[in-house]
């Protein structure tokens, strides 16, 4: 008799496919939040599997801060073409131009928090009732308590103390007009699981994840890439280093690490030996102990 059990990656895959199909069955107008980072690429890949041989039956949505890595935008456009699905773009620049939000000031100013308004506006104007994200519970302590189906009130806010219990595999996505849900199909994956799966499935990811030469500056314990948005301090100096990125966010806040890992095998090997969390290089999480929880409550990804 052959083995009748799944290995851990197959079980995680099956669980994510189940969640994605539940979203499609329970909501009228879902989207995948697509950032061009590996987690949203993974969710998109899993959605392809969930609905095969049909194509993904809902759009991808990108909240564009305007502070992108050019590679990410190219990658996004390619994947949209390949899947034949619609792309919705919410533009932070437009939110600024319309006076909905104001740019942060100061040395470490970012557009990270501004995304919340743009995201919620895009959800409202496109009548989206479920935004599927690539958030994982192992990423950050506030995320450890996140549900697969996570309710947002009509202001887009998360109330972590008043979440719907999720038992077995029964998910309750019922909501009133104006409210929406966030769904997290890869809640139970760790960074290592993501890399092992990307390697196994040979999923295409942006070149930024692989070691490459880049102009960078040392800031807040990581290598921040040079870009048109970078304002140098007096003591700072631009150098060229062989680096890669563990996560992708805005070009202004995503720090790289020095690395020679230029294949998926080498990346997986490198990640397994890592002693810092992947978000350790994200200055948006370093602002305070509850930085993520505070942003999530307001409606962040």
């Amino acid at each position: 008799m052959s083995k009748y059990y799944l290995n851990y990656l197959d079980e995680l895959e099956s669980e994510a496919i189940f969640i994605l199909r539940e979203v499609w069955a329970q909501f009228d107008n879902p989207v995948i939040l697509f950032s061009g980072g590996k987690d949203s690429i993974l969710v998109t890949h899993l959605a392809k599997k969930a609905f095969y041989p049909a194509k993904i039956p809902f759009p991808l949505m990108h909240v564009d801060t305007g502070h992108n890595f050019p590679e990410t935008i190219q990658f996004r456009d390619d994947i949209i073409k390949d899947l034949g699905v619609e792309l919705i773009v919410g533009s932070v620049q437009e939110s600024i131009d319309e006076g909905r939000v104001a740019e942060e000031r100061g040395k470490n100013a970012t557009r990270n928090a501004l995304q919340i308004t743009t995201l919620l506006d895009a959800i409202e104007s496109n009548k989206i009732d479920c935004a599927i994200g690539g958030g994982r519970r192992d990423e950050e302590k506030a995320r450890a308590k996140e549900r697969f189906f996570s309710h947002r009130d009509d202001f887009g806010q998360w109330d972590p103390k008043n979440q719907r219990p999720e038992l077995w595999n029964i998910f309750n996505g019922r909501h009133f007009e104006g409210e929406h849900f966030r769904a997290f199909p890869i809640s139970n994956w760790t960074e290592m699981d993501v890399w092992n799966y990307i390697k196994r499935e040979n999923i295409a990811i942006p070149s930024l994840y692989f070691a490459h030469e880049r102009e960078v500056v040392w800031r807040q314990d990581s290598w921040i890439p040079n870009s048109e948005f970078l304002v140098l301090e007096d003591h700072e100096e631009i150098v060229t280093k062989k680096i890669r990125f563990r996560t992708l966010g805005d070009i202004t806040i995503t720090g790289g690490i020095e690395s020679d890992a230029d294949t998926l095998e080498k990346i997986a090997e490198e990640v397994s030996g890592m002693r810092q969390t992947e978000r350790g290089n994200r200055s948006d999480d370093k602002r305070s102990e509850s930085a993520m929880e505070d942003r999530k409550r307001q409606g962040y990804f």
């Binding site: 519970r137 450890a144 308590k145 972590p160 103390k161 929880e293």
Partner: peptide, 19 residues
């Protein structure tokens, strides 16, 4: 310890998942 309230009160209120 996960949520801010839990850290302040020193108790676990909700289910937290660890890996």
């Amino acid at each position: 310890d996960g949520l801010r309230d839990e850290r302040e009160q020193g108790i676990t209120i909700d289910v937290a998942y660890r890996y």
